[in-house]
């Protein structure tokens, strides 16, 4: 039996204690910094938010009034981009996980969607401008902006769909096949219902992502000021992130519009965090349900 001298043992413990404390301190300082950022903005912005701020049009060169058109614009963009991206993304996820055979094609599709996830958002903006705005002639419009945002959200939805389908135990599939169900029927009646809550998580995360993006909508949809809410898919729209960008950097009276900028930032943060929280809730709620079964 070899035993370390006490000296070494103590040294070892001391090292460990120091290292652990450093890790602990760093972790908490990171959290602290992130919270300080949130707090800094919330403190200045939360007081601005009231019913009028949410439901009024901007007035007086956007230094007073509300941000209704930006909220509605973001809502339209999120809705439209999800209408496009969600079905396509889910079907693609089903293809990758259920239909594609292992091998070159599956590898190719996976590689492509992975790479799509890594494309910087400004590149999506460039592409959207070249294809939707100019080539297809949509002009800067909700349609062009939503299509661009849909592409951005696509890999996220594909990946969550794929992961949630993968999580469905194969015994379910085999049982369904044994009962004589076809592959499509099995997917529709057995696999999808089980995977559905997780797929929805992807949708919610996609909404969070899409509502906060500025670069892709810069040249495809964003408007500085609209007198009315957008009326059709071919109208331009205001949007929360772009609104925050313009009122914090342009406009002739920056100081006067600062409160609006902070208020807009708070709304944006609340939407994005709210969506993430919702996704977490759906995920944990569902996993608990499965355990109970």
């Amino acid at each position: 039996m070899i035993s370390f001298p006490k000296q070494v043992d103590r040294e070892k413990r001391l090292h460990q204690a120091i290292a652990f404390w450093i890790a602990r301190i760093i972790s908490y300082s990171i959290l602290l910094i992130l919270f300080l950022i949130l707090f800094f903005i919330l403190k200045r912005g939360i007081g601005v938010i009231n019913w009028e701020f949410l439901t009024a049009m901007p007035i007086d060169g956007m230094t007073k009034g509300g941000i209704l058109p930006a909220i509605v614009g973001t809502l339209y963009l999120v809705l439209m981009s999800m209408i496009i991206a969600f079905p396509v993304g889910v079907l693609s996820g089903i293809y990758v996980n259920e239909y594609a055979k292992e091998g070159a094609i599956k590898q190719f599709v996976k590689m492509m969607t992975n790479n799509l996830a890594g494309v910087p958002s400004i590149v999506f903006g460039l592409f959207g401008m070249a294809l939707f705005v100019n080539r297809l002639g949509f002009g800067a419009s909700i349609l062009a902006g939503s299509l661009t945002l849909a592409l951005l959200a696509l890999p996220l939805i594909i990946r969550t769909t794929e992961e949630s389908l993968k999580a469905v135990d194969d015994t379910f599939r085999h049982a369904s096949y044994a009962l004589g169900a076809s592959k499509l029927r099995t997917i529709r009646k057995v696999v999808l219902p089980i995977a559905f809550p997780n797929i929805i998580t992807g949708l919610i995360l996609g909404i969070g992502r899409v509502s906060g993006e500025t670069a892709p909508i810069l040249f495809t949809v964003a408007a500085y000021f609209l007198p009315k809410l957008p009326q059709s898919l071919f109208d331009q729209a205001m949007a929360l992130p772009y609104h925050l960008y313009v009122i914090s950097t342009s406009g002739t009276n920056i100081q006067a519009s600062r409160p609006i900028a902070y208020g807009t930032a708070v709304i944006l943060i609340l939407i994005v965090l709210g969506m993430n929280l919702l996704a977490n809730f759906v995920r944990s709620h569902y996993s608990r349900k499965v355990k109970m079964k």
């Binding site: 079905p87 693609s92 293809y95 239909y99 492509m112 969607t113 790479n115 494309v119 590149v123 594909i158």
Partner: peptide, 19 residues
């Protein structure tokens, strides 16, 4: 389903092409 899968995969190529 298959068409969607391929369309998604081809989006990158489309981006590359236009860019």
């Amino acid at each position: 389903i298959k068409a969607c899968g391929f369309a998604s995969a081809l989006t990158v190529l489309l981006i590359v092409f236009f860019l």
